Simulated assay, not measured.
Amino acid sequence: MAEWITSTMESLDYWGIALLMFLENLFPPIPSELIMPLAGFTIAKGDMGFVPAVLAGVIGTVLGAFPWYYLGKAVSEERLEHLADRYGKWITVSSKDIKKANNWFSRHGVRAVFFGRLVPGVRTLISLPAGINHMSFIPFVLYSTIGTSLWVIFLTTLGYLLGDNYELVDEYLGPVSKIVLLSLVIWFIIWIVRKRNRRYE
């Protein structure tokens, strides 16, 4: 995977970044945690500019969010979950992933699109519940762009600072993302318990 990402970026330059980030949103197994840090490393060598690389990453990501968004609009949640359980293994997406993304959207509303772009494991699929719940297109693009920009800048900066060790971003961010997700689940459970306790007071 790392070799393919490297060769694509070397041969296509900024177009390669946009293409890879577009595909990363369609196929979750492709990690943005490798793509943008590699771009940051390339910037550190003087072979790319920071702003164009970030713009390419943001544009590719936002464009890659549209297919999931329109799929959510066109197909019911139940049908999507059935399809995910039947064919999702090819892109590592299950009905549980769809439920998790939809629950995230239900809890946070349109803000979920912004925050979801910053959480690995949620960021790719958050477009689905936005479509399922018929979120307006302009707010969807706006929140997606802002959240994506922060994520892309963060990863690119890490790659720039780490230099030759840019691959450490993917190595260490994986466990960190799991901690973030666990923390969010714990916070949500506490929130539910407190809300129920208030009802009985």
Score class of each variant (00 low, 15 high):
2 A>W: 00
4 W>R: 04
5 I>W: 01
8 T>W: 00
9 M>I: 00
12 L>Q: 06
17 I>Q: 05
20 L>Y: 00
21 M>L: 07
23 L>D: 08
28 P>L: 04
31 P>T: 09
35 I>T: 04
37 P>D: 02
38 L>W: 03
39 A>Q: 03
40 G>Q: 09
40 G>L: 08
40 G>P: 12
41 F>K: 15
42 T>G: 02
44 A>Q: 12
48 M>I: 09
51 V>A: 09
58 V>T: 04
58 V>W: 03
59 I>S: 05
60 G>R: 05
63 L>M: 01
65 A>L: 09
67 P>H: 02
67 P>W: 02
77 E>P: 00
79 R>K: 10
80 L>T: 01
83 L>V: 03
83 L>Q: 10
87 Y>G: 01
89 K>Y: 14
89 K>D: 06
90 W>M: 12
94 S>L: 07
94 S>G: 10
100 K>Y: 15
102 N>A: 13
104 W>R: 11
106 S>P: 02
112 A>Y: 02
114 F>S: 04
115 F>I: 07
115 F>N: 03
116 G>K: 06
116 G>H: 02
119 V>G: 03
124 T>E: 08
124 T>L: 03
124 T>R: 11
126 I>K: 01
131 G>W: 01
131 G>K: 06
132 I>T: 04
142 L>I: 14
144 S>Y: 00
145 T>D: 11
145 T>I: 12
146 I>N: 09
148 T>C: 13
151 W>P: 08
152 V>G: 09
152 V>F: 09
153 I>V: 15
153 I>Q: 12
154 F>V: 06
158 L>C: 14
162 L>E: 09
162 L>P: 15
163 G>E: 03
164 D>A: 10
166 Y>T: 13
167 E>D: 10
171 E>M: 10
174 G>V: 01
176 V>T: 09
176 V>L: 15
177 S>A: 08
180 V>T: 08
182 L>P: 05
183 S>F: 15
184 L>D: 10
187 W>Y: 15
195 K>E: 03
196 R>T: 01
200 Y>N: 08
